[in-house]
């Protein structure tokens, strides 16, 4: 079971704003910790994997619940 240390609520926001907020939030947690991102913009399913790949973080899981999404990002560096 993934245990996030912080949850970022981006409901109602459209990409790239959730990605920019994720970038800010990840600076506030320690390496090895997990950030949970809540979103309802389906574009995040494209953008978050690319952002994680380019910035060297790990997207551990993405849970789709209807039109809402929970993404778990592990800070790697």
């Amino acid at each position: 079971m993934i245990q996030p240390v912080m949850t970022l609520d981006t409901y109602g926001l459209l990409c790239p704003v959730p990605i920019m907020k994720t970038a800010s939030a990840i600076r506030e947690i320690a390496v090895g910790e997990v950030l949970e991102v809540l979103a309802d913009d389906p574009q995040i399913l494209e953008d978050m994997p690319a952002w994680c790949a380019s910035n060297g973080h790990a997207l551990l899981d993405t849970i789709e619940e209807g039109e809402e999404y929970r993404l778990f990002v592990k800070k790697v560096k």
Partner: peptide, 22 residues
């Protein structure tokens, strides 16, 4: 087909970090 954020995609392809500033 979703429309991609090309800057993030390019960063992922080239393996370089990308900062987005509003």
């Amino acid at each position: 087909k979703p429309v991609r954020n090309e800057a993030l995609q390019a960063g992922a392809k080239l393996d370089l970090p990308v900062e987005m500033i509003d």
